[in-house]
Design a protein around this nucleic acid. Structure first.
Length: 438
RNA sequence: GGCCUCAUCGUCUAACGGUUAGGACAACGGGUUUUCAAUCCGUUAAUCGGAGUUCGAUUCUCCGUGAGGUCACCA
């Protein structure tokens, strides 16, 4: 048992990485790190038509963003055509495969694998023993022509070349496994240990895919929305696996320590964005204050960013977001505008419930008086609150004072409390807005 | 349709023969100084159905049912 664990992540650069891909990569990563093994990345571009350089680049930038570091050289199918060709010849010479003359299709001379038929059994770390009859596969194609292998051949050759010990992949590959076992053994190799992990599903319970579910299937969407990589990793790890305790927040290191195939779920799991949002916020709360501030300011529209008020706004915004893109959204929905410029006031909305208008006016005057007594240096939310609450408490209803003040300052139905707004916009602006409201 | 896989609250899941079936997200209700947010407390909510094995089944077996995956010269 000197076999060091070697896992791999072999995406094909035919599109953006999907959330399912990411979780597969993650499990491979966790397992290899847990066993002090290797985690290899391989680019499977055997489909020349659909493979694109830009997607290949995106794969590496996604991996980097996630912080999943891989070991060794990156194998690329398109660099290995000579090796495949050699292996193909070998298979043909040994009688495991043959060149078949086709009457249909573009390629006249495809290479087919001589299917021995019968049952193939393999052990799966998650599902136990899986049995499949390969007879109905017939003599399946392993190369478009002698120079041009398809996926199944390339995977087997490459896995063998890299000494892959564990093939951890999505359940959608489970029916590919028997034929790959056939190829591996024909190549004289030893089959790896398999683990077919359950699929990540969309709301409709079908496999999450770009084709069917749009951009929310790809990691890019979540990066663009400003989710934290720690949250994405934590979230994805917990779809289909759970260490059993009641802990919900995990760091990568904790996941490496805890990960266990015997606790991987068998059924597919639906990607639940509400839970992601919650997890993301939990991870955000664990960030250093300066970084939170930096991120929030960076996501504010340019006109707001450099104002001193923006800095004071940070905690107010932070309480109301679950991901960075929410900052922008708040600004776009004009929920922040009143901090920067006086709002338009609708007289009727100044009234608290059925309080008489005269009373509202009187209370506003009271508020102004009280606030004028606070020095500009002490114009903090706390002092404003103390001062205003003294008056509010003497009233029949606190809302008779608090509501009109809040509305006069914000012009909004929903906003942070009046003390916070006042402290943020400053004494002069506060008094000016209150006077205007009167 | 063939083959394969799966099945606990709406969702992610815990309980690997004995629990009032637990937690988290969401939802709902309430407190916390007026609204929003945050926070605290609480409530609702699940073992797909039927046989068996067993003193006892969420858990083991079988049969249904349902769901998903896969059936390419894509990966």
């Amino acid at each position: 048992m000197d076999n060091k664990v070697v896992t791999r992540f072999p995406p094909s650069p035919t599109g953006l990485l999907q959330m399912g891909n990411i979780r597969t990569a993650l499990y491979n990563y966790l397992f290899s790190r847990q066993n002090s093994g290797k985690f290899i990345v391989r680019i499977e571009d055997t489909d020349k038509e659909r493979s694109k350089k830009e997607y290949e680049k995106a794969i590496f930038s996604d991996l980097k963003w996630l912080g999943l570091e891989y070991d060794g050289e990156v194998l690329k199918s398109s660099d290995r055509t000579e090796i495949y060709k050699k292996k193909l010849h070998e298979l043909i010479e040994k009688g495991f495969a043959y060149i078949s003359q086709e009457t249909e299709g573009e390629n006249r001379e495809v290479v087919r694998f001589k299917n021995p038929g019968g049952e193939i059994k393999f052990q799966d770390l998650i599902r136990g023993e899986v049995t499949m009859d390969v007879s109905d596969l017939k003599d399946f194609i392993i190369a478009r022509n002698i120079n041009d292998p398809i996926y199944h051949l390339a995977v087997c050759v490459d896995d063998l070349a890299s000494g892959i010990t564990h093939v951890i992949r999505g359940e959608d590959h489970i029916s590919n496994t028997p034929r790959q076992i056939l190829i591996i053994e024909a190549l004289g190799g030893v089959r790896p240990i398999y683990a077919h992990i359950p699929l990540i599903l969309a709301q409709d319970k079908s496999k999450l895919s770009k084709r069917k579910h749009g951009e929310t299937a790809s990691l890019k969407y979540y990066i663009d929305k400003g989710y934290l990589s720690e949250a994405i990793i934590n979230f994805l790890a917990l779809i289909g696996w759970n260490p059993g305790g009641e802990q919900e927040i995990f760091t990568l290191d904790e996941l490496i320590k805890e990960f266990d195939f015997s606790k991987v779920q068998k059924g597919g799991g639906i990607l639940n964005i509400e839970k992601l949002d919650w997890l993301n916020k939990e991870h955000m709360k664990r960030m250093p204050q300066e970084e939170i501030e930096k991120s929030i300011l960076a996501h504010l529209p340019e006109g707001m960013q450099d104002k001193t008020i923006a800095r004071r706004l940070v905690p107010i915004i932070f309480d109301r977001i679950s991901k960075w893109a929410d900052v922008k959204e708040m600004a776009e929905k004009e929920e922040l505008d009143f901090f920067f410029k006086p709002p338009a006031i609708d007289k009727a909305k100044l009234i608290y419930k059925k309080t008489a208008p005269e009373k509202i006016t009187k209370n506003l005057h009271l508020a102004i008086q009280a606030l004028e007594n606070i020095s500009e240096n002490n114009f903090t939310a706390e002092d404003i609150k103390n001062s205003l609450m003294t008056i509010a408490d003497s009233l029949e209803n606190r809302g008779e004072l608090l509501h009109p003040v809040r509305y006069a300052l914000s012009g909004a139905d929903k906003s942070p409390d009046p003390f916070l707004i006042a402290a943020t916009i400053g004494k002069n602006e506060t008094l000016s807005r209150l006077k205007k409201a009167i």
